[in-house]
Design a protein around this nucleic acid. Structure first.
Lengths: 209, 209
DNA sequence: CGGTAATTACACTCATGAGTTACATCATTC
DNA sequence: GAATGATGTAACTCATGAGTGTAATTACCG
C-alpha cells in the first residue's frame, strides 16, 4: 500500500516529481494504447498498470485525450534530437539519410514513438490533429529534402522523393505492428536490413557500396 | 423514399440480392472504418451512408463485429486471386515477386483491402483474430518463400527474407494511411516507384535491370 | 389478389467508461 | 503539530452506442 514509488525513472528530486509522474502516466498510457488501442483502453486500466487510482491520474492530466496528446508531444520531442543530428549540413547526404532512418527506427521501436504509428488521430480534437500533422509533416519533409538533394548531387538515382519517402516511413511505421511480441527482433538488426534494402534501392547503378 | 436500389453493384437478379446487399453493407462499413476508425463508427452512420435504417442492417448481419470480420473475409478473398497468380511456378521468381507486390498494392488501395492495414484486430473475438492472422501469415509466407528462393537462385542478394518482407509489406500497408485523400496518387504510380526501390534494393550488384 | 420478404419507425434495455463530487487519509516539511 | 500536497474511497452523473422488440408499412412474386 505504499503510496510513492511509481514515478521516478531517473533520480529526480521532489520538485520534479510532478513532471516525472505525469510522464509515467503518459508512458503507461502509450504502452496500453499500443497494445490494445486507444478506445479499448480505459483509464482504470492505465491506473491499474501503475497501481494507482483513476482519481490520481486526473491529478496529473485533464482528460484521456490529454494523455494521448501528451504521448505524441513527448515522443516528438525525442524524435527532435534525431532530426537535429540529420540536419548537420557538413555531413554527406547519404550519411544524413542513414542517420535519420536509423534514428527513426529506434524511435518508433519505443512506446512513445510507436504511438504515432499505432494510434489513429481521430481521437484527438481537430486542432490537436492539425498540430500533429504539422510535426509529422516536418519529419517527412526532411527526408524528402535529403533525397531530393541526393538526386541533385548524383549520389542517388532519380526517383519521386515523395513516394520513396512514403515507402520508407511506411516500412518503419509498420515495425511496431509486427515486432511488439515476446521476443522482438532487435531494433538495430531491423535498421541494418532496412538500410541495405533502401540504400541500395536508392543508389544509382554505378556506386554500389 | 424508394426502398430498393442500394445493393446492386453488378446486375444480379433477386436470388442474389441478399448477398449483394450484405456486401454493400460490408463495403460501406469498410469505407467508414478506414476513414474514422472502427470504434468511432456507429451502425447508424453506416446505415446513413446507405440511406438505410440501423434495423435493416441487422437484417443482413448479426453484429458490428460481423461487419468488420466480413470486410476482412471478403477482402482476403480478392487477395487470393493475386496470390494464385504469383503461385505460378513456371514464371521467373523476380516476376512472381513483382506480381505479388503489384497485386497487393492495388488491393490495399481499395476499401476492403485497406481495412486490414487501417483497423487493428482488437475489436474481433480471439478466434476471429486467430483466423485473420492465419490468412495474413499465408501472404507473408508466400513473399518470404519467393525471396528465399530468389536468393538461392542467385537472382537476389543475400538478406533476411523475414525482415525484407516486413519492410515491403510495411511500406505497402502504410499506403492507405497517407493516400486516402481528395486526389490520391494513382495506385499504379505508387507500385512503379515502390517496385524500382525494392527490386533494385533486392538485386545483387551484378544484374541491375 | 394474397402472401411473403424487406424495410421502416421508434421506443427500449443495457453495458461501458469518462469525468466529477466530496471526503478521508497519509506524508512531508517547516 | 499544523499546513500543504498527494492519494485513496466510493458513489454518482451522464452520454453514447450496440442490440432488441414489436407493430406497421411497403415491395414483390406467383
Amino acid at each position: 500500500m505504499s503510496k510513492q514509488g511509481w514515478g521516478q525513472g531517473s533520480g529526480d528530486q521532489p520538485p520534479n516529481q510532478r513532471a516525472a509522474k505525469r510522464r509515467a502516466v503518459l508512458e503507461a498510457g502509450a504502452r496500453l494504447f499500443n497494445d490494445q488501442g486507444y478506445e479499448q483502453t480505459s483509464l482504470e486500466e492505465i491506473a491499474a498498470a501503475l497501481s494507482i487510482t483513476k482519481r490520481t491520474i486526473y491529478y496529473y492530466v485533464d482528460s484521456k485525450e490529454d494523455i494521448l496528446f501528451g504521448c505524441h508531444q513527448l515522443g516528438l520531442e525525442f524524435l527532435g534530437e534525431t532530426m537535429q543530428q540529420a540536419q548537420d549540413e557538413t555531413l554527406p547526404v547519404l550519411d544524413r539519410v542513414q542517420l535519420l532512418i536509423r534514428g527513426y527506427c529506434a524511435w518508433v521501436s519505443g512506446d512513445l514513438g510507436a504511438t504515432i504509428a499505432m494510434v489513429r488521430e481521430h481521437s484527438l480534437s481537430p486542432e490537436r490533429q492539425a498540430e500533429l500533422r504539422e510535426s509529422k509533416g516536418r519529419v517527412d519533409h526532411q527526408l524528402r529534402a535529403l533525397i531530393a538533394q541526393g538526386i541533385e548531387e548524383g549520389v542517388l538515382r532519380p526517383c519521386d522523393p515523395r513516394l520513396v519517402t512514403a515507402a520508407i516511413f511506411g516500412a518503419l511505421n509498420w515495425i511496431p505492428h509486427w515486432n511488439r511480441v515476446a521476443s522482438p527482433v532487435p531494433q538495430e538488426e531491423i535498421a541494418e536490413q532496412y538500410l541495405s534494402l533502401m540504400m541500395q534501392g536508392l543508389m544509382p547503378d554505378s556506386q554500389q557500396a
